[in-house]
Every structure is written in structure tokens, then in C-alpha cells.
Computed example of a mutant assay.
Amino acid sequence: MTGSYLIGDEMTGGYGGADILHGVTIAVDKGEIAVIVGPNGAGKSTAMKAMFGMLPLRAGQVRLGGRDITALTPQERVREGMAFVPQTNNVFASMTVEENLEMGAFIRDDDFSATMEQVFELFPVLREKRRQPAGELSGGQRQQVAVGRALMTRPSVLMLDEPTAGVSPIVMDELFDRIIEIARAGIAVLMVEQNARQALNIADRGYVLVQGRNRYTGTGAELLADPEVRRSFLGG
């Protein structure tokens, strides 16, 4: 784990006075999918927000490519190659699909048309609907816009908070297929996911958090096969 590309190491912190995270460690390497699962209130989204700089740490550190980035703002982390897709309010509803993608390239001063073409190849429906306001799309299509916009920054790390929340099982499977493709392109993918069984199925690494602490860590296959994990978190 020490050689992983992105590491949140022994993270302790919270909002205001109370700590939500208690020595949590999460790591992911380039080309991998790491999934954070656990019950509601376990600190899953908080851990990911801490790694993106949205939560001050009282202890621990975040390292990217071996460099300590704990003191960097989220904006500075974007410029270092990190991209974060929140669960809700993750598109500009009144802007077209294409305008949303263009907004994702705000940190770039080069020609980003090739990257947009790659996004359209990954999510063909976005090409069809490129002139349509994002607010008129289905939930699954809006998620594609949000992920596509994050990819416009050409990130080395893609962070997804509940990417399949509120979508149908078919759409969920399609999104997971695209996430696998993104990782295969060499991007480190870290996601929080309520659909634990399906997410662990595609995960190279899995982290089960309980009450702000690491409870189980292993490959996706190891966690799926663990009787305790199955009984406590996967419905048997």
C-alpha cells in the first residue's frame, strides 16, 4: 500500500469539533478501482472528501505520487491531477451537454477536442445529446455528463461519490462497465458505493468502513468471499 499512487494515510478528522474519521487508511494505484463500502454513517464519503481536501485532517496525511498534498486545496488538487464527482448537483442543468464538458476543461489552455471525442466514445449517448440541456437528461445520463466533465481535466485520479445512486440496475451495470474502461486507461479510480456487492465485483481493492474506522480491507474478491463481510454488509 505504501507504494500506491494515492494514499489517505491514518486520516483522522471531521466537521467542527467531532471526529468522523478515526485513523482511516485508503489507497489506490493507477489502473486500479478501489471501492469504499459500509453502512450509512460509516464515514465513506467523508473519507473520500478528506482525500480531496474538502475536510481538514487533525491527523494523518494524503499523498499523491509520493508527494504530501495534505495542505493543498481541492482546486490545487485538481491541477495536480485529481477529479471529484459528487453524488448530487454534479451537472450545470441549464447548460448543454457539450458546454458541461467544456467547463471540465477550464484548467486547460490546449486544444481539448481530442479529449471530448474520447468522452463521446466512452459515452455515445452524450454525442447524440450534446446540444441538449443537461437538466433534461435521465439520472444515468446526467451521471455520464458528470463523469465526462471530470475526465476533461485528463485526471490521473477519478473520485466518484455514489455514482449509481438512483439509477436502474441496467444503467448501473453500464456505468460500472465504463468505470472499468476508465481504469484500464491507466486512471486510478476511487469510489464510494452503496451497491456494495456489485461494486466489490469490479474492485481491485475494497475497504469496509464502520463508524469511521477500517473494519475490513482486501481485494474485491477477498471481501466478497469473507463470511463476516457477507453476513454483515452484503445480506448473507
Rank of each mutant, 00 (worst) to 15 (best):
G235R: 12
N214V: 13
A183D: 03
R197L: 08
E193L: 10
Q132K: 08
S113H: 13
P169D: 01
G66C: 08
F92R: 08
P124K: 02
Y15P: 00
Q75S: 10
L57Y: 07
E102G: 09
V24Q: 11
R77W: 13
G206R: 14
K129G: 04
M172C: 06
Q132M: 02
G220M: 09
R77S: 06
T12R: 10
G140P: 08
V157G: 09
T73C: 01
R79H: 12
A165H: 09
P169C: 03
V125P: 00
S168Q: 11
R230T: 05
I202N: 06
A83P: 00
G17H: 01
V78Y: 05
P86R: 03
A185Y: 00
V91H: 08
M95A: 02
S4H: 15
R154L: 10
G220F: 14
R215T: 05
A221M: 09
E174M: 03
M54R: 14
M159T: 15
L175K: 02
T96G: 00
D68C: 11
E10A: 03
P86S: 06
Y216V: 02
N89H: 01
P169R: 08
G3N: 15
G3E: 13
Q75A: 00
Y216A: 12
G140D: 01
E10F: 00
E99T: 02
V62P: 14
D19G: 12
L57I: 07
Q141G: 06
A34Y: 06
P163F: 01
S168T: 07
R197I: 05
F123C: 00
P74D: 00
R108K: 04
I20P: 11
V210G: 13
V91P: 00
K49G: 04
F92S: 09
N100R: 11
L224Y: 04
